[in-house]
């Protein structure tokens, strides 16, 4: 598998993770009237998972982009 295809696979995986994190069943679990560290739970949940997602995306694109720095005409998504 080319580095590009691997990266693409990881990002699609992250996309699916994001879809699960930010949709009904999981979201409903955190939709409670609770405060954590003085911050409402849902607010905390959304921003934490959002940050996590961005972090993972940064890692996914960083580690696998190094081998192929020049544009690759052969492989696509």
């Amino acid at each position: 598998m080319t580095p590009k295809a691997r990266k693409n696979k990881r990002l699609v995986g992250l996309f699916l993770l994001g879809c699960v994190l930010f949709n009904c069943p999981l979201l409903a679990l955190f939709n409670l009237k609770t405060m954590i560290f003085g911050v409402p739970l849902l607010f905390l949940y959304i921003f934490t998972s959002w940050t996590l997602l961005i972090l993972l995306a940064a890692i996914a694109t960083k580690t696998s982009s190094r081998p192929s720095s020049k544009p690759d005409d052969q492989t696509g998504p």
């Binding site: 990266k7 693409n8 990002l11 699609v12 994001g18 879809c19 959002w50 995306a57 998504p77």
Partner: peptide, 27 residues
């Protein structure tokens, strides 16, 4: 309430598909 965040979480998710969708459109 928090509904306004969807407008920015959606693009975040789409950005993750950047290589699949955007790159193809760009090419």
């Amino acid at each position: 309430g928090l509904g306004f965040l969807t407008i920015y979480i959606g693009p975040t998710l789409m950005a993750l598909l950047g290589w699949m969708v955007w790159q193809k459109i760009i090419r």
